[in-house]
Design a protein around this nucleic acid. Structure first.
Lengths: 105, 105
DNA sequence: TTTTTGCGAAACCAAACAGTTGCACTTATA
DNA sequence: TATAAGTGCAACTGTTTGGTTTCGCAAAAA
């Protein structure tokens, strides 16, 4: 069972859940209202999100509030950094090229 | 067959391929040498990457060079932005809190 | 021309996945 | 206490995934 953050965000429903609870913690029932599937299906997604530490539970009586562990999202951001570097470098090169052309004029 | 970039980067092998060819275009055989699986398996991954426009082919005789379409990666970056905003806001709030405590001292 | 090389496509398979329904447990309420 | 509400877990199902092997085709080399 591969459980990493990249697999977690691969599913559109899970991305929806993540965006939803990023603003405020919610219960499974409240989350399920936003999707066209059963509460149990949402519950399964929440379990996957919990398994890779993207989501934290907080019991409150018989209700469980799910909250996004936003710091975990930084892992994706970190991986993206290498590509951001590349396209920034390319932009600088393009910029230099343009100013070289300008000077020649 | 839904093919989006999030599904493309979900697989560790595909992430490896992306990182590999980010530097320079490569042929399937050359790529496969870096992984412990058959060329055909790599080819399948390349097809998936091609299907979601993450990768571009360039035929050169009987060889096909695969090159990363780095701009496509910006889609992930764009999705990440909403979370980056949140954690930057939280950092600022923490920063303000700290300076308030400092002043009181 | 014949053979080798680089490649994609198809058929196949086991494992994982994303749903469902049904059930049991706990907490709040009548 | 009996019942309703909120939840997780297990069993089951159809589909997708990630790999394999086998094949055919086109380009390069013998």
């Amino acid at each position: 069972m591969r459980r990493d953050i990249f697999q977690a965000i691969a599913d559109p429903t899970r991305r929806g859940i993540i965006t939803l609870i990023a603003v405020q913690a919610m219960t499974p029932n409240a989350i399920a209202e936003h999707f066209d599937m059963t509460r149990q299906a949402i519950s399964k997604h929440l379990r996957i999100l919990t398994e890779c530490d993207l989501v934290k539970q907080e019991q409150q009586g018989r209700e469980i509030y799910y909250q996004l562990e936003i710091d975990k999202m930084k892992e994706v951001d970190k991986w993206m950094e290498q590509f951001r570097k590349i396209w920034e470098t390319r932009f600088q090169q393009l910029d230099q090229l343009l100013s070289t052309i300008k000077k020649k004029k």
